Amino acid sequence: MARRHDPGRRQRIIDAAIRVVGAKGIAGLSHRSVAAEADVPLGSTTYHFASLDELMVAALRQANEGFAEVLAAHPALSDPAADLAGALARVLGEWLGGEGVELEYELYLAALRRPPLRPVAAEWAEAVAALLSRRTDPVTARALVALMDGICLQVLLTGAQYDEEYAREVLGRVIDAGRGRGPGRPAGERDPADAR
């Protein structure tokens, strides 16, 4: 019997892996559970992904694309007059209120025990920092990524309510510090030297 050509099978397997992790967590992820979810033969999952780590790398890479795409499309990244701290705080709130954020962080945190996932986690941080570097210097951009990551983790791990105003304030402080403004000036307040 001839093998049926199925060019979308690899993508369906990745999508199925993301659904499995969303429903059962990392512990529920196996080639067998993914094959069942994707409605493909077990051999298809091992053909496209020789190891579970390879499958998780593909799933994490796909899950990571969402936040970067939302951020890249935000007009505040290309408008130097826009309130960057306020825009980032809003994007974080929308992201945390959307679907799939827990899944993304579960895959992201899996890198703690699965070294093959670490480069993908680093790719995410580098991609977001590169986007933020359109409005700030690279060091400040990396600090903003770390701060946003920390805020998201605190909300997700503690069940605390996301506080957009707090996020705007602390993000503004990092941005202002990157511009050479001391911590004593309120976030968002322009430095008189900027008018020169």
Rank of each mutant, 00 (worst) to 15 (best):
G22T: 11
A27P: 15
S30F: 11
H48E: 02
S51Q: 06
T46M: 05
D39C: 07
R19H: 10
G25E: 01
D39N: 13
V57L: 08
R32F: 09
V40E: 04
T46C: 04
A38W: 01
V21A: 14
V20Q: 03
D53Q: 12
I26F: 00
I14A: 06
G25V: 09
L42I: 09
T46I: 13
A58R: 09
F49G: 00
A17I: 04
Y47A: 02
S44P: 13
G28D: 01
A23L: 09
G43R: 12
D53P: 01
A36C: 04
S51L: 13
R12I: 14
A59E: 08
P41N: 04
T46V: 15
K24S: 15
L60D: 03
S30Y: 08
G22R: 05
Q11T: 13
L42G: 06
A23G: 11
M56N: 02
S51I: 09
L29W: 06
Q62G: 05
F49K: 01
R12W: 15
I18M: 10
K24H: 15
G43Y: 15
V34T: 10
P41R: 05
A58T: 10
A59C: 11
Q62N: 07
H31T: 04
A35E: 03
P41E: 03
Q11A: 14
I13D: 01
H48C: 05
A59Q: 07
G43K: 13
R32V: 09
I13A: 02
F49W: 13
R12A: 15
G43F: 15
L52M: 12
V21W: 00
A63R: 08
V40C: 07
G28S: 07
A17Y: 01
I26K: 07
D39V: 11
A36D: 08
R32I: 04
V34Y: 06
R61W: 06
D39W: 08
L29D: 04
D53G: 08
L29Y: 06
V40P: 04
A63W: 00
A17F: 04
G28N: 03
A38Y: 03
Q62W: 00
M56Y: 01
A17L: 06
A35M: 09
A59R: 05
A50F: 05
A50W: 05
T45E: 01
A38N: 04
V40Y: 07
G22F: 00
F49C: 03
S30R: 03
A27W: 05
A17P: 05
S30K: 02
M56K: 12
R19Y: 02
F49Q: 00
R32E: 08
I26E: 01
D39K: 11
R61G: 13
S33W: 05
G22K: 00
V34M: 04
H31D: 08
Q62C: 02
A23Y: 00
D39G: 10
R12T: 11
Y47G: 00
S44Y: 15
